[in-house]
Design a protein around this nucleic acid. Structure first.
Lengths: 337, 337
DNA sequence: GAGGGTTGTCGAAGCGCTTCGACACCTTTC
DNA sequence: GAAAGGTGTCGAAGCGCTTCGACAACCCTC
């Protein structure tokens, strides 16, 4: 294993000089720098991460806490995780992957041991038990998601309230008066993961303003659950012509069931989805949708965090503006009876 | 920040004694141990990861390299990643998340800097450019997947060859003579990710033995691609009654299209999928399938790696035996004309 | 009761790096 | 031409931990 001292000797300079070449924290003459860099290359030197962390009390690692559940909105999580990892690397950071399993203990462990310089938390619940710990430490952190109380916290999320409003507006503009919302699984609402509720708020508020009738039904993913839900919807509101879906794994079942019932999309029924682009474009009908900008959220979170680590930046809540893309699943409401 | 020295002072012992209490590498009297543990708790001591890594040249971190692509078999990847993370924690290791993006450089960086003690690589190609590096280092590693040449490597994977054979056998037993294989996207075959080709080998070999006719068509995910593929299949082999699908995002489109064409599953056509359990049970028809045991693979990989790190264990290839679960998508072949 | 093992604890030497202050040298500036 | 101010380099201290050898103190055994 090659050490800094060996590089220094090889280049005929002192260890500290090599260190300064590496960090750029003091000016170094061009000739010396080149000599040192040449030695580094020739010897195949890699700074030792542990020693670095010890001496500088900076690990250059960001901890990313992802939910343990693998049953919900997986592709979104994965996309965020990968965006975070990729983006972190461009800033010189590596990602430590923590699962939600350990809960608050993971936060304690990481901040206490100096394993990571900062944290990104995903799948934040409205009243998350990790939040007090984050507020009580001076280690920077960013949440992806929005808890009930954001004081002293930095958050990044899609503006789900606006998302809900946008969906309703789009359907209203097309003349739909009865709208059904196929929501996430009941468990999601029970855990009070804010995004589902905020979407619903947005939907309801705008529906009230526009004087539309709105029916909300949570729905487990899958075909059977969707069939049951759909039956209930048409039972209670036979005139429903607009659907808003916020559950990736209910999208395709819904389309299949509508087709099976002889309801054409978009002639008889319009569908708007809140989902990743890929789901929208790969579905059996190209879906009018509001995209969940997973990558952008990941990148944004890293940016905020790096800013904090550099002493810039401060606590703030960033809500990304939703964008609705019209595709083939929505159209004018059918003429009334 | 509390240090080991402070704990030692508080407990009235030397620093080394505290260290030995923590590591258990020397025997400590019960009374001393208890005193030290009490001090640790009272002071809220957490060992500093950097210092530990420096002194012991062990970081207690395992690097996990996942593919950058977010377009293929994402849920499987995610499930493996989470299983790896969870399982690693039970052995006292944390996970460093690397994306495939950096390629071989990531391997160099991690082994060179001592950032991690070992690596797990996913999405290994048949002739992966990272392999020479792994062979050339004494840092333990485990591959999830199977390259062409496994000498000097440890690998964990599903036995995809047996998986293919199993699918064909099942359909043959039900009397199907013409079988179509809906494969992964062409890109997967082009990258020579072994699993798709091994499945195909297994399918073909057994089909030959059982004197079945087999048609293989790669297929991008999504509805449109599937529609085109399906048209070609029935065009070339109108008597096809059995389908084997190895592309999660083609499963639901296939079912929808068959339904649309008036072909009943399983009365007219049988479908066998190679996919995670969740996909099989949530599809519009409960699918007869061979599960991809993502969690088990992740756990296994960690176990192997920990064994190596402890000086036990050696290079070997573990192929998990596939299991076919019969559900509602396969049945006897329809009587001939 | 002297020799030989255990057992439990300690001191000290690093692990490889960062960083601070010092200092020699070279420009400016008036 | 002396004071003031840069620049570029070095030496040394130390980050918090592990681990090795040393060594008391104790228990056997013949």
């Amino acid at each position: 294993m090659v050490t800094l001292a060996e590089v220094a000797q090889h280049a005929g300079v002192s260890a500290s000089t090599v260190s300064y070449v590496l960090s750029g924290k003091r000016s170094i003459s061009t000739s010396t720098r080149q000599r040192v860099e040449e030695s580094i290359r020739r010897l195949g030197y890699h700074p030792n991460a542990g020693a670095r962390a010890l001496a500088s009390s900076r690990s250059n690692i960001i901890a990313l806490m992802i939910p343990l559940r693998t049953d919900m909105y997986v592709p979104v999580m994965m996309e965020i995780a990968i965006a975070v990892a990729t983006s972190a690397r461009t800033h010189g950071y590596d990602i430590l992957l923590l699962t939600g399993e350990e809960g608050p203990d993971a936060v304690r462990r990481v901040t206490g041991s100096g394993l990571a310089d900062a944290m990104i938390l995903m799948d934040v619940e409205l009243d998350d038990e990790r939040l007090p710990l984050l507020r009580g430490t001076d280690q920077p952190s960013v949440l992806i998601g929005l808890p009930a109380d954001t004081t002293g916290l930095t958050c990044v999320d899609l503006d789900f309230r606006a998302t809900g409003a946008l969906c309703v507006e789009h359907l209203a503009k097309l003349g739909h008066r009865d709208i059904a919302v196929i929501g996430e699984a009941p468990a999601v609402y029970e855990r009070h993961t804010g995004f589902a509720e905020r979407t619903l708020d947005g939907l309801r508020a705008r529906a009230r303003e526009l004087e539309l009738r709105l029916l909300h039904r949570p729905c487990e993913g899958g075909y059977d659950a969707m069939a049951a839900t759909l039956a209930r919807v048409f039972d209670e509101r036979p005139d429903t012509t607009g659907f808003v879906v916020q559950n990736e794994s209910a999208v395709e079942p819904l389309l299949a069931l509508l087709r099976q019932q002889g309801r054409a999309v978009p002639e008889d029924v319009s569908v708007v989805a809140v989902c990743p682009e890929q789901v929208a474009t790969q579905a059996s009908v190209r879906l009018t949708s509001v995209a969940v900008p997973a990558q952008e959220m990941g990148r944004h979170a890293v940016q905020q965090l790096v800013a904090k680590l550099d002493g810039r930046g401060s606590d703030e809540v960033v809500l990304l503006a939703p964008e609705l893309t019209v595709r083939a699943s929505s159209g004018p409401a059918p003429a009334g009876p």
